[in-house]
Design a protein around this nucleic acid. Structure first.
Lengths: 155, 155
DNA sequence: GTTCGTGCAAAAACTTTGCATTATC
DNA sequence: GATAATGCAAAGTTTTTGCACGAAC
């Protein structure tokens, strides 16, 4: 299901706009359309190419350059988070209204499962502090076989 | 300090060679030189470009294509591990004879600090188990500002 | 009206590939 | 001698950039 139902488009655009105003940037038609596309998308983790595909048949088209530039601004605005799953391209994910979470990825079927553990967050801060490091964010991925795949062919 | 002192070049080449033989691949002069360069390198995390630099002035030269191809084989052989730090290029690291560890990366100067926490490992297994997930490996990166950069310009 | 954003195509950065030649087993 | 590896340059990917034109504030 698309996420438009779960997430309030207007609220998100407002948040984006207030960020833009604070930075003396402009809310353009393209930026608005990009946000709408992201909210309407099936995938929770998408790349620049996914957006590009969606704009391919629509007009007015939104160009590649604009998409890349907008994704950067959306990350700065805290609306998107950027991920690296070891693929050759970057993936993004809506952070709006969600708690921070990390990921388990099934190496057999590619499913991504999200999890959150306060205990883990605390431990990470502790490790960083011990090394005099001032953490801004982190990325944790656990790779393995998910429940379903394990049931199907347990070897 | 280079790591040649810490790591046994001959042992590593033997391991590599036995992998190659098992796969009916060949131990060429270039592959041998690449392994030696990696052992002699200062950096613990390096990219294809780092190796390329080292071969730039030496002859016979080892070509870009050969380096990329060799890195792939070395990962398959379990001699190198591949990482993704959200940069535009892949980094590699010797896995030989080292305990598993995770990484902190300074987003200002790019320094990578390693850490290991048993507590963290245990917690990850616990989280995975709770979700019926059978973990094979994981990757954890904490991003932030390192001690030195923090001292220099603390804003 | 100023400043910022867009589209386009060109460039950049990194990696892969095709192919004739050479080395290893 | 068969098979795999190399070097080179060319092509692929994904992302970034320069610049003239257009849109937002």
């Amino acid at each position: 299901m698309p996420r438009a139902a779960k997430t309030d488009t207007k609220g998100l655009l407002d948040k984006f706009d207030s960020f833009l105003q604070r930075k003396s940037l402009k809310l353009t038609a393209q930026r608005r359309r990009i946000v709408e596309q992201i909210l309407g998308m099936e995938k929770t983790h998408f790349g620049a190419d996914d957006l590009l595909d969606q704009f391919r048949d629509e007009r007015p088209r939104v160009s590649k350059a604009t998409i890349y530039r907008a994704l950067g601004v959306l990350v700065e605005a805290g609306i998107l988070e950027q991920h690296d799953f070891g693929e050759s391209h970057r993936l993004f994910e809506l952070s709006e209204g969600r708690d921070h979470h990390d990921h388990l990825m099934c190496t057999r079927c590619g499913t991504i499962i999200e999890f959150h553990s306060e205990e883990m967050e605390a431990l990470q801060d502790k490790v960083a502090a011990r090394l005099g490091f001032h953490p801004t964010h982190h990325s944790q991925k656990i790779f393995g076989i998910c429940k379903d795949c394990w049931k199907q062919g347990k070897r």
